[in-house]
Amino acid sequence: MTCAMMKSLFGHKAWANAELFDVLETLPAGPDQHTAIRTMNHIYVVDRIFQAHLLGQPHDYQGTNTTATPTLSELRRAVTATDAWFQEYIASLDDGALAERLRFKFTDGDAGTMSREEMLMHVITHGGYHRGNVGQILKNVSIAPPRDLLTKFLHIADPDRRG
Results as ranks from 00 to 15, higher is better:
residue 72 L to E: 03
residue 102 L to Y: 01
residue 66 T to K: 14
residue 123 V to K: 02
residue 105 K to S: 14
residue 129 Y to V: 02
residue 131 R to L: 04
residue 133 N to P: 04
residue 85 W to T: 01
residue 154 L to I: 06
residue 132 G to T: 05
residue 137 I to P: 09
residue 121 M to W: 13
residue 70 P to S: 05
residue 140 N to V: 03
residue 126 H to D: 13
residue 102 L to G: 00
residue 112 G to D: 05
residue 155 H to Y: 12
residue 82 T to S: 04
residue 156 I to D: 07
residue 70 P to D: 01
residue 138 L to A: 07
residue 133 N to H: 13
residue 142 S to V: 11
residue 85 W to C: 04
residue 64 T to C: 05
residue 114 M to G: 14
residue 70 P to F: 00
residue 86 F to W: 02
residue 76 R to A: 14
residue 89 Y to Q: 09
residue 95 D to C: 06
residue 66 T to Q: 15
residue 128 G to Y: 06
residue 157 A to T: 05
residue 79 V to E: 08
residue 99 A to K: 12
residue 98 L to M: 02
residue 66 T to H: 12
residue 120 L to N: 01
residue 78 A to G: 10
residue 126 H to W: 12
residue 98 L to Y: 00
residue 68 A to Q: 15
residue 73 S to Y: 03
residue 129 Y to M: 05
residue 139 K to N: 08
residue 96 G to A: 15
residue 78 A to H: 11
residue 92 S to L: 01
residue 98 L to I: 01
residue 149 L to D: 14
residue 153 F to S: 05
residue 124 I to C: 10
residue 128 G to P: 11
residue 106 F to V: 08
residue 158 D to V: 09
residue 145 P to S: 00
residue 121 M to F: 04
residue 135 G to A: 01
residue 121 M to C: 15
residue 98 L to E: 03
residue 111 A to Q: 09
residue 110 D to H: 15
residue 137 I to L: 11
residue 117 E to M: 15
residue 126 H to V: 13
residue 78 A to N: 12
residue 90 I to H: 01
residue 145 P to W: 00
residue 160 D to K: 09
